[in-house]
Lab assay of single mutants.
Amino acid sequence: TRVETATETAWISLVTALHLVLGLSAVLGLLLLRWQFPAHYRRLRHALW
């Protein structure tokens, strides 16, 4: 049971790290898009909202 718990903890930390990385890359990508294509971003936002 001790090994299982350790594996579970490792998986949880791995998944958390993955989610953090994905979230950060998504935010960075959005910022980059907004910085590179302001007109396109505004049009996209206008279409979405």
Rank of each mutant, 00 (worst) to 15 (best):
T1A: 11
T1H: 13
T1Y: 10
T1D: 04
T1Q: 08
T1L: 14
T1S: 12
T1V: 10
T1K: 11
R2G: 09
R2N: 05
R2W: 11
V3T: 01
V3R: 00
V3S: 01
V3D: 00
E4K: 06
E4L: 06
E4Q: 08
T5F: 04
T5Y: 03
T5C: 01
T5L: 06
T5H: 00
A6L: 10
A6H: 05
A6R: 08
T7Y: 09
T7V: 13
T7S: 10
T7Q: 12
T7F: 06
E8C: 08
E8G: 10
E8S: 10
T9Y: 11
T9I: 13
T9E: 10
T9P: 12
T9C: 05
T9N: 11
T9K: 14
A10D: 15
A10S: 14
A10E: 10
A10N: 09
A10Y: 10
A10Q: 15
W11I: 10
W11E: 08
W11T: 10
I12W: 07
I12D: 09
S13H: 12
S13Q: 14
S13R: 14
S13Y: 13
S13V: 07
L14W: 12
L14M: 09
V15E: 05
V15K: 09
V15F: 11
V15I: 10
T16G: 13
T16L: 11
T16Q: 04
T16P: 04
A17Y: 04
L18H: 00
L18P: 02
L18A: 05
H19W: 15
H19D: 03
H19G: 14
H19E: 09
L20D: 00
L20G: 13
L20I: 10
L20P: 03
L20Y: 05
V21N: 01
V21K: 01
V21S: 05
V21D: 03
V21M: 15
G23A: 15
G23T: 12
G23E: 02
L24E: 01
L24M: 15
L24N: 01
S25T: 13
S25D: 03
S25M: 05
S25H: 04
A26N: 02
A26G: 15
A26I: 09
A26D: 00
A26M: 06
A26S: 14
V27G: 09
V27Q: 02
V27S: 06
L28C: 14
L28W: 10
L28R: 01
G29W: 04
G29C: 13
G29N: 00
G29D: 03
G29A: 13
G29M: 08
L30A: 12
L30T: 04
L30I: 12
L30H: 03
L30K: 00
L31S: 09
L31N: 02
L31G: 03
L31V: 11
L31F: 15
L32E: 02
L32M: 14
L32P: 03
L32Q: 01
L32H: 03
L33M: 06
L33F: 12
L33S: 01
L33R: 01
Q36M: 12
Q36R: 14
Q36E: 03
F37V: 05
F37H: 05
F37I: 07
F37S: 04
F37Y: 15
P38A: 12
P38I: 07
P38D: 06
P38F: 06
P38W: 06
A39C: 06
A39I: 07
A39K: 14
A39N: 12
A39T: 11
H40C: 12
Y41A: 13
Y41T: 09
Y41M: 15
R42Y: 13
R42V: 05
R42L: 08
R42A: 10
R43A: 12
R43Q: 06
R43T: 09
L44K: 02
L44I: 10
L44G: 03
R45E: 02
R45K: 13
R45F: 04
H46R: 06
H46C: 12
H46E: 07
H46G: 12
H46Q: 13
A47C: 05
A47W: 08
A47F: 07
A47T: 06
A47H: 08
L48A: 04
L48Q: 00
L48E: 02
L48P: 00
L48H: 00
W49E: 01
W49Q: 00
W49V: 02
